[in-house]
Amino acid sequence: MAQDNRYDSHEPGEHPKAFISYTHDSEEHRDAVLTFADLLVRQGIDVVLDRWATDRRQDWQAWATRNITGSDHVLVIASEGYLRMGDGIGPNHLNLGGQAEAALLRDLLQGDRATWTARILPVLLPGHGKDEIPNFLQPNAADWYDVPAITPEATESLLRVLTRQPRDVPPALGPRPVLPPRSGPSPAPLIVPGELAVVRRSELLPQGFRSQSPLVEMHLVPASSLVRYGVLQLERICDELATSGRATGLFSHTQAISVGSSADAAWALSTDGRSGECGLAVLRGGQRTCWFALPSATIGWILDRDDLTSKLTERLNLLLQIGLPLPDSFAPAIALEPVSLTRLGRLSDATANSASLPINPPERIMLGTEEVFRIEELRHSPRAVAEELAARLAVAFRR
């Protein structure tokens, strides 16, 4: 007679292998275990059960050892008989096979508790309770699996463990929050050996959109290491730009946002003048850019240095959190366009009915890269960098 090798070796694959260990408490209990095993097989589980291995004479001790150690999991069916036999308090002359299996399981747990705690799964069939789980399986400190009915629905939690399909999975990791220190030295910038090329907002916007209100634009230009993003990376970052911009307050929750990308850049922007024109962009060469409107007043717009510093700090953090690889350092640049009907002042003056506006203001202020900051410095002291940018813009405005 040809030998059936189904229980002789374990071949990991699509169908997990589970050994069922139980005691023959009664014919009713044996039949319940058989029905349960049949259900598992129909759910794709390769079940090892003693009643299906009687086609030839067996050395049951060797059979159990071989299949327990060769299975992905051992399902211990809790019952009054298994409790007595599993904890070694039952009559020695009863359930000899079950006693041998439980002794092996106790020994395996003692030798490698972490591995076998995960592989041995106590199961409660209908009519049985937690108090029938042997103490060596830690019924109060480890998981057990209740099967209130022998149906696919009632065995879902057990099937998820057997097939390694968890019900709940964690979300993808988001960007690490930037938590700058509240005190300490300001970052020490390096001098840019030569002004770096800056791609301005007007070159990024589709169809050369021109704003009617003064927009502050801030650029972070890679200064130390070469960065080049792929076109696919730019396509995939568009939605993140919109989501991050809205989450950090660049875009309001009611503001309409347009997202897009090209071979050279990805962007998310709003041209809604009532809500404040603003945008966020990443260039293929690594530059990161954002722009936003100055606060409006009864007469024109106000450049409040303190307010601008706070907004630039928030925007610096936003630009650094974009989920693309960063260079070693950035050189910041700032601009204001258009400048007409803009004045230096305080937000508290916004409702004044009279204002002193500059005579013959420049059409735009474009300040290039002058200093280089390492990424760690920008992350740790964004406000100090923002203060310097706001000061540079205010000084240029007064000229």
Rank of each mutant, 00 (worst) to 15 (best):
G368V: 03
Q233L: 01
P91L: 08
P171M: 07
W116P: 13
V147Q: 00
A391I: 10
G98R: 05
L94M: 10
D272W: 08
D264C: 09
I237K: 02
Y22E: 00
A37F: 01
T271H: 10
D55K: 03
G276F: 03
P177T: 03
M1C: 15
W60L: 07
F373P: 00
D8C: 14
D46N: 10
G81N: 06
E377Y: 11
D59R: 06
E371L: 03
R246I: 02
R288S: 01
T65M: 12
R84A: 08
R374N: 12
L283S: 02
P177K: 03
P332W: 02
L190I: 12
E377V: 13
I359Y: 14
L319H: 07
P214H: 06
L347E: 11
P295V: 02
V372D: 03
E314P: 06
I120D: 00
E11L: 15
E388T: 14
S21C: 05
L319P: 00
G245P: 05
G90C: 11
L312D: 04
Q207A: 15
L294H: 08
P177F: 00
T54F: 12
E156H: 14
N92I: 15
L357W: 07
R346A: 11
L39F: 06
A355P: 05
F209K: 06
S262M: 09
E14L: 14
D112F: 00
L204D: 04
E203P: 05
K130A: 06
Q233N: 14
Q58G: 06
D25L: 11
A142P: 10
